[in-house]
Amino acid sequence: MAKATVNKIISFSCVDGPGNRSAVFLQGCGFDCRYCHNPETIHACIHCGECVKYCKPGALTLVEETVRQTDEQGVCCGDAGVVCFGGGVMPEVSDGLPGLRSADRGTGRKRVHYDITKCVFCDECFRHCPHGASARTRELTAEQVMQEVRRNLPFIRGITVSGGECTLWRDFLLELLSLAKAEGLGTLLDSNGSYEFSKDSKLMSVTDGVMLDVKAWSREDHLRVTGRDNACVLRNLEWLAHAGKLAEVRTVVVPELFDCRQTVREVSALLAELGCLDARYKIIRYRPMGVREQYKDLTPPTEDLLQELTDIAAGYGLRDVVIV
């Protein structure tokens, strides 16, 4: 069974798709959005041990490495401690983190062990992590995740897998969604669109829908916001809408970072053209909460702008446009 690095599991969520859903957050993301509200989910922990001293309840401890890394294979960009986003084969290391090389480890072959039963969720650990990571994660199989989700039946209608970027854990995802389907649960993915959904019919057969972030329409803007190209994102937007798998589109509005009007206009126009008028378009107000220090000075949008964007989308006939 494939394992994934699970950042957290929220038993009841009212903000990760329609109704009440259990939300599973996986670690690691190939984008590096400046306004990321959960920057600790971007990178994989390199077990440097820095955060351990900030963990007052003793949920984090530094322990000897027991399993050695097996051979490395496939594409690896070599970014120290950064999760592979290239869509290539992810090299497996001892703890299952993709794209992480042994050389990137801290000294002395120690690793940080996390005991969720002692954790008080004070967030001190990742607030002090110099690597944009979190040691407050667990390596879990799909079945282990499902065991936690089953506690929430019958109050939930589905699960949503989010991140980080959940598609970095494709095999795990396939297993988890299949298990959820077997329980009669709905399945949604929350994705930055860096994965070619059209080429994975197996995964799509157990996915009810994808909630897709469109961070910016033009390539230059997208590069500025995320550090990555958006050709794949836009292909996904079109393909998902066409395939009836587009559950929701979201755009976080940061006026000084990209052309918000253009983005909302082009997305809405495309959806209208494809007759996809009932997909929810969430216009998300940028808030500095949780954002990294160096990007904190970005200005939140005005109410007027948010309303203007909503009107643009509604003008194309979209029926479910919400500001959050």
Binding site: N20, L153, F155
Partner: peptide, 19 residues
């Protein structure tokens, strides 16, 4: 319940149905 539920009243519906 949190304000965001205004946008997702189905959240409460699921809890009632489950109960």
């Amino acid at each position: 319940v949190d304000l965001t539920v205004h946008k997702n009243p189905q959240y409460v519906l699921d809890i009632i149905r489950g109960s």
